[in-house]
Nucleic acid binder design. Sequence first.
DNA 1: TAATCAATTAGGAATCAATCCTAAAAGAGG
DNA 2: CCTCTTTTAGGATTGATTCCTAATTGATTA
Lengths: 120, 120
Amino acid sequence: MTRQRELIYRIVTAAPEHRTAEEIYDLAREEIPSLARGTVYRNLGLLVQAGQIRKLEMDGAPARYDRDPLTHPHLICQRCGRVEDLTMPEALLAPLAEDLGEPITGYELKLYHICPACRG
Amino acid sequence: MTRQRELIYRIVTAAPEHRTAEEIYDLAREEIPSLARGTVYRNLGLLVQAGQIRKLEMDGAPARYDRDPLTHPHLICQRCGRVEDLTMPEALLAPLAEDLGEPITGYELKLYHICPACRG
DNA sequence: TAATCAATTAGGAATCAATCCTAAAAGAGG
DNA sequence: CCTCTTTTAGGATTGATTCCTAATTGATTA
């Protein structure tokens, strides 16, 4: 485990923020100024593959990273892009999956709103 | 309404397929060979804005376009990317939105599976 | 039908997040 | 400290999408 990967992991998991790779890159360079962008992307990918964090694709905006690797819905501000985690009663989704008669390998539920800060 | 936009609209709405801009571009050029890629993107954007079709962002793959502009969940094959429309009992989602005490402006639910064709 | 003005097009350049490449540097294990 | 493997920095590249511009088309009114 290199210094770089540890730092990147720490930044993603330290706060509930769902940061973009660029934001993580900026924060990480405060500690390792020589850090390369490619290193951030590669390590984020590895951490996702290892199931330690989660990648959230963002509809026409850079992806964000979630410290919680478990599947759960997100509440997303349409204006500023801020993401909040939601806890989903699994029971809610189960009936839908059953109706399909198809094995579901995963899901992604995004709810959109305008966050209090953006409502002004 | 130009020939180009009409053609693009026709291609998206004629079939239940959820095609990418590139696929639409290829199909459209069978009828208007001089059609430019930029024209496809611009018109798709305008049709989305007009609420006539819907854009589906695809997690690390080119976006796809849905002839049904109304919000509904999608069933997506993880291997080949094929998309199927689902009909969502609105009742299922309502309780979630209520719990938030926040006005929800929209949602996006994607269910993932391996489609029969890819299962082989 | 012609004149006019706005909207749209083709074509290509530019953007931007993300990936890939390579030689150099750092971890891990003995 | 030696060797071998992994990882890094830095920059080039990719690929979907957007943007730019001059030329064309469409719609409207005369």
